[in-house]
Simulated scan of single mutants.
Amino acid sequence: MIKFFRKIRQNLLSEGKTGKYFKYAIGEIILVVIGILIALGINNWNLNRIETKQTKTILNSMILDLESDISNLESDIVFFENDIQKSRIVLNSEKFDRITEDSLYNLLPTNSSSYSLNRHSFEKLKNSGINNILDSDELYESISAYYTDNADILNTVNSWDFDYSLKATDFWRLGNEFEGPILNDTIITRYRDGDIIRKTKLVQLVSSMKSRNIIRYAISRKLTCINVYKGIKFDAENLIKIINQELGLKK
Results as ranks from 00 to 15, higher is better:
residue 93 S to T: 04
residue 177 E to R: 13
residue 237 E to V: 06
residue 35 G to N: 06
residue 23 K to N: 15
residue 180 G to S: 15
residue 100 T to W: 00
residue 103 S to I: 00
residue 33 V to I: 15
residue 221 R to T: 04
residue 157 V to C: 00
residue 229 Y to A: 07
residue 171 F to Q: 00
residue 152 D to I: 13
residue 133 I to Q: 03
residue 43 N to M: 13
residue 128 S to L: 12
residue 172 W to S: 09
residue 131 N to A: 13
residue 195 D to M: 08
residue 152 D to N: 12
residue 83 D to S: 15
residue 208 S to R: 05
residue 72 N to R: 11
residue 136 S to M: 07
residue 197 I to K: 05
residue 13 L to E: 07
residue 30 I to D: 12
residue 163 D to L: 07
residue 247 L to W: 00
residue 14 S to Y: 13
residue 7 K to M: 12
residue 15 E to R: 06
residue 250 K to V: 04
residue 32 V to W: 11
residue 213 N to V: 07
residue 205 L to S: 04
residue 152 D to C: 10
residue 135 D to I: 13
residue 58 I to V: 06
residue 225 C to F: 03
residue 40 L to V: 09
residue 149 D to I: 14
residue 179 E to I: 15
residue 220 S to N: 09
residue 12 L to V: 00
residue 185 D to M: 06
residue 74 E to T: 15
residue 199 K to T: 00
residue 120 H to Q: 15
residue 107 L to S: 00
residue 187 I to Q: 08
residue 208 S to F: 07
residue 224 T to A: 10
residue 194 G to P: 03
residue 99 I to F: 01
residue 35 G to M: 09
residue 160 W to S: 14
residue 240 I to R: 01
residue 126 K to P: 03
residue 145 A to P: 11
residue 87 S to E: 07
residue 136 S to D: 09
residue 159 S to E: 08
residue 142 S to K: 07
residue 153 I to Y: 06
residue 168 A to F: 04
residue 9 R to W: 06
residue 226 I to H: 01
residue 177 E to K: 14
residue 225 C to G: 06
residue 11 N to C: 08
residue 40 L to S: 08
residue 251 K to I: 07
residue 200 T to H: 13
residue 80 F to N: 03
residue 212 R to N: 04
residue 118 N to P: 05
residue 180 G to C: 09
residue 55 T to W: 00
residue 244 N to M: 08
residue 197 I to L: 08
residue 78 V to E: 15
residue 16 G to N: 08
residue 167 K to F: 09
